Simulated scan of single mutants.
Amino acid sequence: MQKIAYQGVPGAYSHIAASYLFPSPKLTGFDNFEAVFESVKVGKAAFAVLPFENTLVGSIYDVFDLLYKYDFKIRGEISLRIDHNLLGIGKLNQVKQVYSHQKALEQCKDFIKARKLKSVVFEDTAAGAEFVARKKNPKAGAIASLHAAHLYKLNILKAQIQSNQENFTRFVIIGKRNHVKRANKTSIVFAAAHKPGSLLECLKPFAQAYLNLTKIQSRPLIGSPWSYLFYLDFEHPVDNKTVTEVLSQVKPHTQMLRKLGTYQNGPTLIEIMVGLTPGITVL
């Protein structure tokens, strides 16, 4: 049975996304993003599910940089609504301090401020929930998913405590090779040539071919000061041969161009408390 890697512990949002996508294979959590990539590189895992961008905090830069470093491919995606919940073993008015990932604490700052709670940063949301379950102190609470509450047998003291309800994270499936049938979305990375107008010339072919860009992100090109990589996502009809022609027009205006993957545009899902929906065919 093939293993699927993710960052965190069971109940983390990455674990939830991986469970939606791969309900049967063994899911294996790792402490950090690079360890996840290494697990795929050495064959400990066939694929990995990683957060790629969030509607509130933007791109997950570490994952972008590692995707370029390891030259892996995107094979699919899914978007998950992120609902943060206050979990604990006692009652709401007993909680004095909360444990969670830094970003989750930031996204719940209004609730934390209103209740005058002390924030304690943990490596991920589910790890905070696991700690609170072991601590067995009614004054301790965790900000985590409903699934974490179910796994660690914690009470849901207050649901959906995030300051902004429109909170979604896009997760991608990565692997060593790209082989997806009936794909309708492509991701690329390129470094524009060092001459006036080169970035414009790189983007023009997409507009001329009526291909919709859904994301553009710049990152420093490590080892080349003041040079940048540009990550692009664009949608296209299934089996669109125009993509090959467009990329051939872009390439002369770049120092480097690499296709990161062609895959199916993924759905948006909402977590449920007990059990997860059946896996979605993306490979």
Rank of each mutant, 00 (worst) to 15 (best):
A129P: 01
V121H: 03
A114Y: 02
R134Q: 14
V120E: 09
I112Y: 02
K118V: 09
V132G: 08
A104I: 09
A114E: 15
L105K: 06
D110E: 14
G128I: 09
C108F: 05
E106Q: 15
S119Q: 14
K116L: 04
T125W: 05
A114P: 01
V132I: 07
V121E: 10
A127T: 14
F111T: 02
D124K: 01
S119K: 10
A104D: 09
E123Q: 14
C108R: 05
I112C: 08
F122I: 00
A104P: 02
A133F: 05
L117A: 07
A126L: 07
Q107P: 06
R115G: 00
K113L: 10
V132E: 06
R115P: 01
K118I: 10
L117F: 08
S119N: 02
F111V: 04
D110L: 12
A133S: 14
K118H: 07
F131T: 10
F111L: 04
K118C: 00
F111Q: 02
I112R: 02
S119L: 07
A104R: 03
L117R: 07
E130N: 11
A126T: 04
F122M: 15
L105C: 04
A129M: 04
A126H: 06
A129C: 05
E106S: 14
K136V: 01
T125Y: 01
K103W: 01
F131P: 02
A127E: 13
F131M: 11
F131R: 13
A114C: 05
R115Y: 11
E123W: 00
I112A: 08
R115Q: 11
